[in-house]
């Protein structure tokens, strides 16, 4: 398993949110603003890296028949330890990301990566897989957050001060002045619609890519004919 294919898998061809359609519960629940999406994305990445690393380290000692309960145990411990450590040493950050950490437990992509990757690979590739799977997930979260915030509120990066401090008030971009807001985008149906559009867009890009590959294969044949 090369690092290139790990990156490609996580970011695009096996993206946790767009292809595996995992982690929908947190994905749909909190992506109504860019800042919320960023918070959940960071928390998920951290957990994926830690749980993948831990699972790959103990993979030789886990018999196949007990692997699922062991993985669940590891993920639960990792999430709890992250929550406690953040609460103690990064309290400011915890006050912002803290609400997202319990949501991570509802993200099945973490168990899926432990089972399908970390249990079969050594430490470094597993950590890389966790990182890029998390990054790919975070990008989809951000795209959803941007879409829903732009349509729902007519802004981007509002409340960035909650995450980056008071100076970040300036980050807020107002796209439309006197925008009345569009409730549908902010409420759960908007999340389903948004995810649908993003998946459709990915499929369109993939299909174009495929056709281009076909053409380049066909063209030399035609010139010979």
């Amino acid at each position: 398993m090369s690092y290139k294919s790990i990156i490609q898998d996580g970011m695009w061809s096996n993206n946790a949110a767009l292809v595996q359609i995992l982690g929908l519960c947190p994905l749909l629940a909190v992506t109504n603003t860019v800042v919320n999406s960023l918070g959940l994305g960071l928390a998920t990445m951290l957990t994926l890296v830690a749980s993948n690393g831990a699972v790959s380290l103990i993979r030789q000692w886990v018999r196949p028949e007990i692997r699922i309960p062991v993985f669940v145990l590891i993920i639960a411990s990792v999430v709890t330890i992250i929550e406690l450590a953040m609460n103690a040493w990064f309290h400011e950050l915890y006050l912002i990301l803290g609400i997202f950490i319990p949501l991570i437990v509802t993200n099945c992509s973490i168990l899926a990566r432990a089972e399908s990757f970390a249990s079969k690979n050594s430490f470094l590739p597993s950590v890389a897989d966790g990182f890029f799977m998390g990054l790919g997930f975070a990008f989809v979260l951000l795209a959803m957050g941007a879409m829903r915030e732009a349509i729902g509120f007519g802004t981007l990066f509002s409340q960035a001060n909650l995450m980056f401090g008071e100076s970040a008030h300036a980050l807020k971009i107002t796209l439309f002045d006197n925008y009345r807001g569009y409730l549908l985008a902010i409420l759960p149906p908007g999340a389903f619609l948004g995810l649908g559009f993003i998946i459709a867009a990915k499929n369109v890009i993939d299909n174009r890519q495929k056709q281009r590959v076909k053409q380049t294969v066909l063209e030399p044949a035609e010139s010979i004919a």
Binding site: I58, W61, V62, R63, I66, P69, V70, L73, I74
Partner: peptide, 8 residues
Amino acid sequence: SSIALAIF
């Protein structure tokens, strides 16, 4: 198996 699980 159960001892291993208990240890974990």
